[in-house]
Amino acid sequence: MVKAGIIGGSGYTGGELLRILLFHPEVEVEYITSRQNAGKPVSFIHPHLREVTKLKFEDYNPSRARDCDVVFLCVPHKASMDKVPELLSSGLKVIDLSADFRLRKKELYEQYYCQHTAPEYLEKAVYGLPELHREEIKKADLIACPGCLSSSIILGLAPFVKAGIIDTEHIIADSKIGSDAAGASFNFMTHHPERANVVRPYQVVGHRHLAEIEQELGLIAGKEIKVGFTPHAVDMVRGILSTMHTFLTRDVSELEVRNIIREFYKDEPFIRILKMSKGYYQLPNPKYVIGSNYCDIGFEIDTHVNRLLIFTAIDNLIKGSAGPAVQNLNIRYGFKETTGLEFPGLYPA
């Protein structure tokens, strides 16, 4: 059994990761921390885990972390970079769900976030999107899991950037995202009267996830790629729908587009094509993936303006966060990649 620690386990991401790991047949959760809730049973903060686990939150202590084989960091950016050097030097494997090690360039990180105090680890970290970096993840000791919006956009665009059928200088990504993505801490704009019934554009230019989106798509294209990206807060608790507006560089058929996705994601266990000709469920919708690690991908060709629309839907807490963290653990330890994640979504939810 792999002994796992969760640092920063009181947030929604930490709770979702714990929920998954508690039923992972190869993992024992040894240690979970929360500064604010140290000493309290986990179920005081994650009520759905009542009588599922007797774990209690502890204070963060590096020597206690050394009782683990692998540590998941579910802390905000800046907090990870303070802990990673010590954890790695103790021989632990680190799967970081924060943004601190997603970007390869220090300058880029500092442009979007803050000063980086452990830049020497940026090159060593592997971007933990299994569909793109599986081989590197197998050998990595520091895995940086992608952002939720980033995952939904990269997974949708990657096949077409690789295929070279879209104009990579004119890509627009528009995402709709639920409220739990704002985290378990609250502020005035997450207050229920402000958040309920909302359709609110936010960080309409320069969203932080843009940096990793352009980094990863640029690696596929072999050249710099710029994306216009605007997210919207909508009245859902969970889920993301991303719509990517791209422009075709040549005529393509629906079959060709479908085959491009099929080929790129051949044998991927958590990618599903959803593009039906009829029926109620023709294109991706967060409602169909809530509670699962799936990413549904659909598309439509708009010949009127030569546009290829790509749609992706994910559960932001699972495929957008805790799911790839567990996939990465499975890949790193040589377990079957779907272990602990073989569940469909809840429907309706």
């Binding site: 479908r258 094509i273 593009k275 039906m276 000709s277 009829k278 029926g279």
Partner: peptide, 8 residues
């Protein structure tokens, strides 16, 4: 009916 795309 095609199970993948739903077309008849």
């Amino acid at each position: 009916e095609c199970e993948e795309c739903g077309v008849e």
